[in-house]
Computed example of a mutant assay.
Amino acid sequence: MTPPPAIVFDPGVPDGTVLWRGDLRTNFRGSGAYACPVGYFAMGYKGTTRYLGDNLYETEVPGVAYRFKMSGTPPSIPCLADKYFPDGCISTFPAGFYNHTLHVELIKTGPITAGGVLTGKFAYWYGGQGSNVIGDYASYTWSGGGVVVQPILPTCKVSTSSIAVPLKDVSAHIFTGIGKTSSGQSFNITLLCSGGTTGPDTNIYVTLTDQTDPGNFSDTLRLTNDSTASGIGIQVLFGTTVIKYGPDSSAAGNKNQWKAGSYGQGTFHIPLTARYIQTAPAVKGGTANGRATFTMSYQ
């Protein structure tokens, strides 16, 4: 099935709305076509992804489902008689299998916070006669790179790209053992979100990266090389959760990426707290600075 360049839609419509529909005209007839020469043939058809009930199959995009129905000639073949998948029938199939049209629909089933791409095989026929089972009699596949599903959602940008967090002076004497922490200093990452339609939100994810040691995937930020203190590091918390550091990437599922929330239009604050933590048995006083980047990912 050749997809359109993109399927663009308002994700704020009610659940059950058809977001897009398209038709695939098959071309099965010709020499060498499958046939059932004697008796009857049991045939079924369904989608390849998880079945959600009510004739719906999940897609790669949360909140969007497939629905399939066939039509064609001759109407005497029950499998071609306007039935939604999944279904099946028992019938005769003469040589030269008849053409039919597959109607593909995308249905809204829940909140849609991001788009995606539908690729590969999405539905098929299966069946058999007696012990002769055909697991994939005919299949339907997106051609090329698939179809882009593009909901009209708000987009966000960072209000301040560089944030200084003064941790203030801390007495070395408070660090009495590994894991001991100082009091925290609050700060925010602020986003300005706009566009899209009123109602739908976009999911906001963040990855913090240790700029002194980009391969550090622990929950403790290393001190910068020009720091003179030792035996301590810096932690960043989102609520009560200590954030682990990850690679500088906005890809979905990036290592140690975390969800900051969902938001629509307006100003969105991500509240964070920074604090020192003791990392060695002995702490040496001095300057103790850390540097991290934050990478946003809207999913």
Rank of each mutant, 00 (worst) to 15 (best):
A114F: 04
S227Y: 13
G290N: 05
R222M: 05
C89L: 07
V38T: 11
M70S: 08
G264P: 01
P281T: 02
T155R: 14
A6S: 15
S162Q: 10
T92A: 13
T198P: 05
M296Y: 04
D136C: 13
Y51R: 06
V242F: 00
P154W: 06
H269D: 11
Q265T: 10
I204L: 15
S171H: 07
L19C: 03
L80E: 08
N55Y: 12
G96A: 13
Y263K: 02
P4H: 08
E105Y: 15
A229Q: 13
T176C: 00
Q265L: 04
P11W: 01
G253I: 07
V206W: 03
T119S: 14
G239F: 08
T17I: 13
D248V: 02
K108Q: 13
A172Y: 07
S182A: 08
I178W: 01
L223D: 03
Y276A: 08
V8E: 05
T59N: 04
V149M: 07
C36K: 02
G264L: 04
T293M: 00
G199Y: 05
V148F: 10
G231Y: 05
S297E: 02
T209P: 03
G233Q: 07
A260M: 04
V165H: 13
A164R: 11
V18Q: 14
I178F: 03
M43F: 07
I163G: 02
F68W: 07
L221T: 03
T197D: 08
N132P: 02
S139E: 05
T73E: 12
C193G: 07
Q185A: 06
N254H: 12
A282W: 02
P37E: 00
T197A: 12
M1Q: 10
G120S: 01
N55W: 09
A81E: 15
L223Q: 07
I174F: 04
F122N: 06
A172T: 10
G116Y: 06
T160H: 11
D54V: 04
N225H: 09
L24V: 10
P166D: 15
G239C: 07
D87Q: 11
I232Q: 02
P14W: 11
Y276L: 14
L167K: 03
Y45A: 01
G177K: 15
V64C: 00
S31H: 08
R29H: 11
K168V: 06
K259T: 11
P247A: 14
M1G: 12
F41W: 10
T2D: 12
S297Y: 01
R222D: 08
G127Y: 01
Y34T: 08
T49L: 09
Y276M: 09
K255N: 12
T240F: 06
D226H: 03
T49C: 04
R21L: 14
R222N: 14
R275Q: 15
T49M: 07
Q257C: 07
Q211H: 00
Y34M: 13
G39W: 10
R50H: 06
V13F: 06
F68A: 03
T209C: 02
I77D: 00
V236R: 02
G30Y: 10
K121P: 00
P37T: 02
Y276T: 04
F97E: 09
S186I: 05
D248G: 00
T202S: 15
I163P: 07
V38Y: 12
I204K: 05
N132R: 10
G264N: 09
L153I: 15
T155N: 13
C36D: 00
F294V: 07
T197P: 00
G32I: 06
Y98G: 08
G44T: 00
G12C: 11
G239Y: 04
D210R: 02
